[in-house]
Each structure stands twice: as structure tokens, then as C-alpha cells.
């Protein structure tokens, strides 16, 4: 049994929140470099360069890359042989978020209730998905989820016979409809199968992958590639000002589903892909 202290988790989470908000990972930075090479629109290239410059300013001055420092999302892999001392996991995570958002001068964007809408002032509560796994590690995957792109995301229960064509057209229509608002170039997370809530979680999980890392199954990887090609024919381009790079990647995650169902969730992610992971 490995013991991990509540305060250790909270401290590490606090640091992770600030780090994610201000320091973009190498995967998104190199995806933007590749986009600059293939973009045909001069204005589009200027936008992409502005995004690179923005990332540099953010890193150098410890400023958030985007003012929407989002809702804090965690996917936790909780080893069966881990014991947390001093409190509960979810409380430790929320304590970390509270401290990190304060210390890092991050925006507090959470309201206590969808109807009465009073700001909680510390960006809690976070959204936490926990999975019990073998071993004595606590793996915490963190993602900042801004609302601009989240609001443009969609879910649809297709008929199984609609198949690949149905999936493709739903993903592409979602981008066509809300893509400009979601801050392109986008990373598109697609959840396929499972049921209503499972496909939404899968679409989000797919966004935790390094950008452009294909699905392990070849046929799914080639579907990702096909959809990306079609999306980049839409002409939306960087910032929606027109261009060839509307999306940087399409990530698909799948799960078995019911004979009568074909659930599809499309989670649009802006270019400010802010995610970090840590193992305790």
C-alpha cells in the first residue's frame, strides 16, 4: 500500500493548473508549426504566427494563454494499492484547483448553479472522472476546458445503419456550424459507441492524447485521417478568416455499443489545448 498525503496532491494540482494555463505543450506548438507550413491563406498564416507569439508571451510572463482558464477537468487513474492520507481524493483535487487559480491569477469562471449562477470565486468544483486501476500509482490527467469551444460541441444518437457516412457527416456538420466560434484551428475529439454519456466522455478522453497521435486501431486511424481531410476542405481556416487549416487533428475513441445504437459525440477543442499529466 502506498500512502500519498492530501496536501501533496493539492500542491501538485495547484502547480499543474498554473502550468497548464500558461505553458502550452510541445505537441500543440509543433502542430501550429506544421499548420504554418501548409496554410495557403496569408491572413491565416499571420493568425497562426500570432498564436505562436502569444504562447511565447504567455510562457515568458506567466500569463494565461487564453483568458478563459476554463473549468478544471480531471481524469484520474486511481491505483488500488494507493491510500490517501488526510482526506478524500476529490477534496484534495478541489483544494489544488482553489489554490492554483488564486495563486496563478487565473480566471474564476464557475457558477454555483446553472439557474441562480453565483460565481464560486475559486473556480471549484472541478469535474473529476475516476477509474480504479491495478497498482500503486495515482495518475492525474488534467485539462482546462474553456467554454467557447465546449459550447459548440454536439452529441447525436445515430441509427446503426447510418454507419461511417453518418458519422462523418455529423462531425463535419458540427464543425461547419460552430467551428468559427470554437477558435480554429481545432482539435476534434470524437466519441463513438458506448451509450449517451459514454460517447461524450470518450470524445473528451480522446483530447487527452498528444495532438495528432492516431488511434491504435488502423481502421479508426484512417477514419480520423479521412475526416480531417474533409474538415480541412471546408475553408474555415485559422480564426475563421478563411484558409486550409480548420483542424489540426481528429481523435476518435470507441467503445462497444447496443445493437440498436450508434452514439456519436463531437467535442470541439480550440487551438489552446491545455493539458498536463502527473503520476504520484
Amino acid at each position: 500500500m502506498k500512502e500519498i498525503h492530501f496536501n501533496d496532491i493539492a500542491d501538485k494540482i495547484a502547480q499543474m493548473c498554473i502550468d497548464a494555463a500558461c505553458n502550452l505543450d510541445e505537441d500543440i506548438l509543433s502542430a501550429l508549426d506544421r499548420a504554418i507550413e501548409i496554410e495557403k491563406s496569408t491572413l491565416g498564416i499571420e493568425v497562426l504566427r500570432q498564436l505562436k507569439e502569444n504562447a511565447e508571451i504567455a510562457r515568458n510572463e506567466s500569463l494565461p494563454v487564453c483568458q478563459d482558464t476554463g473549468m478544471a477537468l480531471f481524469f484520474v487513474e486511481y491505483g488500488e494499492d494507493v491510500k490517501i492520507k488526510g482526506g478524500l481524493l476529490n477534496d484534495a483535487i478541489n483544494e489544488g484547483v482553489r489554490q492554483g487559480y488564486k495563486k496563478g491569477y487565473l480566471r474564476k469562471s464557475i457558477v454555483n448553479d446553472p439557474i441562480t449562477r453565483r460565481n464560486t470565486q475559486d473556480n471549484t468544483p472541478a469535474i473529476i472522472h475516476t477509474e480504479l486501476v491495478a497498482g500503486n500509482n495515482l495518475k492525474i490527467n488534467f485539462k482546462i476546458v474553456g467554454a467557447g469551444c465546449e459550447n459548440m460541441s454536439k452529441i447525436k444518437m445515430l441509427k446503426p445503419t447510418e454507419g461511417i457516412e453518418g458519422i462523418k457527416s455529423f462531425v463535419i456538420d458540427t464543425v461547419k456550424e460552430g467551428g468559427i466560434n470554437a477558435c480554429p484551428p481545432l482539435i476534434i475529439g470524437v466519441g463513438l459507441g458506448g451509450n449517451f454519456e459514454m460517447c461524450a466522455i470518450l470524445s473528451k478522453k480522446s483530447l487527452m492524447r498528444p495532438i495528432g497521435q492516431p488511434n491504435k486501431r488502423m481502421e479508426i486511424a484512417s477514419l480520423e485521417e479521412d475526416i480531417l481531410k474533409d474538415i480541412n476542405k471546408l475553408g474555415i481556416g485559422p480564426a475563421g478568416f478563411g484558409g486550409r487549416v480548420t483542424a489540426l487533428a481528429v481523435h476518435i475513441e470507441t467503445y462497444p455499443c447496443h445493437i440498436a445504437s450508434l452514439p456519436v459525440a463531437v467535442n470541439l477543442n480550440c487551438h489552446a489545448s491545455r493539458k498536463k499529466a502527473l503520476i504520484l
Binding site: 506567466s62 500569463l63 494565461p64 483568458q67 480566471r107 467557447g148
Partner: peptide, 20 residues
């Protein structure tokens, strides 16, 4: 249309990009 992040002590404003 913006909702900036809080200003750190050495700055007049935090990050302030456009919202939808």
C-alpha cells in the same frame, strides 16, 4: 466582448482575448 483574467501585481490587466 471579453472577461479578462485577474491582473497580476506587475500588470494593468491579465490575459484578455475575445469571447464568442
Amino acid at each position: 466582448f471579453t472577461g479578462p483574467t485577474p491582473a497580476p501585481p506587475d500588470k494593468v490587466i491579465g490575459s484578455a482575448g475575445p469571447t464568442t
